[in-house]
């Protein structure tokens, strides 16, 4: 079975719509989102009708848990003061602009989704199987830990998001760990497109990363109209992260320019 896995949306409803259309066109039977519907972008409420229209099933991310339960902060897990400063700005905006109905929906989401197809047990979660806001970076996630996750959490394929950067690793016995990246902001590589993931459980190598162009200039203009901080808008236009990047490990940080 072929399914689409979308990472953090971060209020980027234009990329969400483009991803859902693209996934349909590529024959995906189902679309899943791995959580964090809100964050940097404009108009949080515009995300929800699209999820409904395409029947997207969502995992609850830390952001969704926070907005859904009206918590003080986004529980992103940043520890650098500058990262926290920007995270707070986007969280305050998202919290203030998400309707009570949509907050109830966010609060109702599950922390993981499981299914078994083609004899493979698939686990979708947000940060890691053990922690909603654990950062699974490619360069700081040891293979032995990923193997252990598959053993401990009874899965052959584990998919996560939370960091915003996509990567995958083949494990023993045909098992896979994949970070699906995010569709909310570009991948800190100087390109304006975002990435989502197609999982084809019938294939021995089941993961394909799909670059997705969308109307990023329109998003940037809407962010400006909403008076969202210029640093967030710059990322949409340049493809490079300008905020919340102290969290990056050395190898991932080197790929950007800030």
């Amino acid at each position: 079975m072929r399914v689409a896995l979308l990472g953090g949306v971060y209020n980027n409803y234009l990329a969400l719509e483009a991803a859902c259309e693209d996934a349909r066109a590529r024959g995906c039977a189902k679309i899943y989102c791995l959580g964090d519907l809100g964050a940097f972008g404009p108009h949080p409420d515009k995300v929800f009708p699209i999820l409904q229209e395409y029947g997207v099933e969502c995992v609850q991310g830390n952001y969704d848990n926070s907005v859904g339960n009206n918590r003080e902060d986004c529980q992103c897990g940043y520890t650098d003061p500058t990262d926290n400063h920007y995270a707070h700005l986007s969280y305050q905006y998202t919290l203030a602009n998400t309707s009570p109905d949509n907050r109830r929906y966010l609060a109702s989401l599950r922390s993981e989704i499981r299914f078994t197809v083609d004899n493979r047990r698939v686990l979708l979660c947000h940060g890691s199987p053990r922690r909603v806001n654990e950062f699974m970076w490619e360069s700081t996630s040891p293979t032995h830990l990923l193997e252990r996750f598959c053993d401990d959490y009874d899965a052959d394929i584990i998919a996560v998001t939370h960091t915003g950067l996509h990567w995958q690793r083949a494990l023993s016995d045909g098992r896979w760990f994949v970070n699906v990246g995010c569709i909310g902001r570009p991948a800190n590589d100087g390109a304006t497109h975002v990435w989502y993931t197609i999982l084809d459980t019938a294939q021995p190598e089941p993961v394909t990363f799909v670059p997705l162009a969308y109307d990023h200039e329109r998003l940037a203009q809407e962010m400006e109209a909403e008076r969202i901080p210029s640093e967030f808008i710059e990322t949409i236009r340049t493809g490079y992260w300008t905020t919340c990047l102290e969290i990056l490990p050395a190898k991932e940080r080197k790929r950007g320019i800030c």
């Binding site: 830390n62 897990g77 940043y78 520890t79 990262d83 909603v132 806001n133 654990e134 969290i247 990056l248």
Partner: peptide, 11 residues
């Protein structure tokens, strides 16, 4: 720890 380890707060 490094910042890249992140905080690990639970819900």
């Amino acid at each position: 720890s490094n910042f890249s380890s992140g905080g690990q707060s639970e819900r």
